[in-house]
Design a protein around this nucleic acid. Sequence first.
DNA 1: GTCTATATTTTGATAGAC
DNA 2: GTCTATCAAAATATAGAC
Lengths: 192, 192
Amino acid sequence: MSPKSETRKEEIVRVAAQLFKEKGYTAVTMRDIAAKMGIKAASLYNHITSKQDILDAVIISLAEAFTNGMQSIKSSNNNTIDKLKQIIQLHVKLSSQNSYAMASLNNDWMHLEERLDYYKKLRVEYEDDFRTILVDGITASDIIEANPEVMLFSILTTLRSLYIWIPKKEDLNLEEFTTTLYQILIEGIINK
Amino acid sequence: MSPKSETRKEEIVRVAAQLFKEKGYTAVTMRDIAAKMGIKAASLYNHITSKQDILDAVIISLAEAFTNGMQSIKSSNNNTIDKLKQIIQLHVKLSSQNSYAMASLNNDWMHLEERLDYYKKLRVEYEDDFRTILVDGITASDIIEANPEVMLFSILTTLRSLYIWIPKKEDLNLEEFTTTLYQILIEGIINK
DNA sequence: GTCTATATTTTGATAGAC
DNA sequence: GTCTATCAAAATATAGAC
């Protein structure tokens, strides 16, 4: 997994993800990717079969990691509060480890082709599990009786955007950040 | 402002914004826009000078509306809580009225060219004003002593993503929604 | 594994007829 | 104000030499 042992295809996917984050999938050309690697565009095709192929590699494994992580949290025996903490942890961890790919996961997924339906299925599973956790939490009186769809939307959009913010704070203490985020997202910011 | 009295250029900008939301600026072709209007791509150039021209029209006036709105809220004599309520109202209002253009404001701004620096200036002004409101609110003990950058990030990413959510709930009561959003974003979801 | 050369398609944009 | 015809540039991708 370290850059030293990565294959040429992995390097292409990693470099492409950086460019996709800056300009979006469609605006990045095979020449852009090749230039950033110091080779010619035609040489890329010795390692990947198409531009689509790169997008699939950037998005799908990360989407699976989120869906699997959420499933595991939902299935645990923890209470709502601990599950919410774990969801935040999951996002902080995956976003800090994949800050480039997160941009494509959020903004370029509609350019998937054969894998589009699979991606959508993963996202629905993940959102359904999160919704279940919230609805169960309301039933158990762990969280307030507000519209669970609005809660889901509100928390999820913040967590999905972490990739924009995390790389800007290079000396960020991830544990401390996770705690602060929990406080703000879940406990609110008002002084009562 | 109503579609009945809109100029042909305004129609182009409106139709283009819908397509930009679906696929992003770069993936939308002049032929796509023309086809959706029932004309040929060449005809578009009788009303606009370039594709760039359309993107400028989609983004800039909306960015100005946010910056002006935030400036006005910051300058008012209300307390922190009322200012935060007004910020949420501003976002709900502009997002419901411009749900297509909001997508480009969030995701296509980097494809601006001559207007890019101006856009960035507007965004910095807007974020600085929001940050000032939060920092003043901490000083006044209206809100908790958490990291204002994390608060700003957390609230702003949710508000900036409203355009994704609002159109999906067609019978949405905007006033009720604003109240729920305030509750979740500012007061938190935990049952204390 | 990378290169040059090139095929094919698509793109933004223009010219000029109606 | 829209059309057809067309241009020039840029894009993805392939073939074949080294």
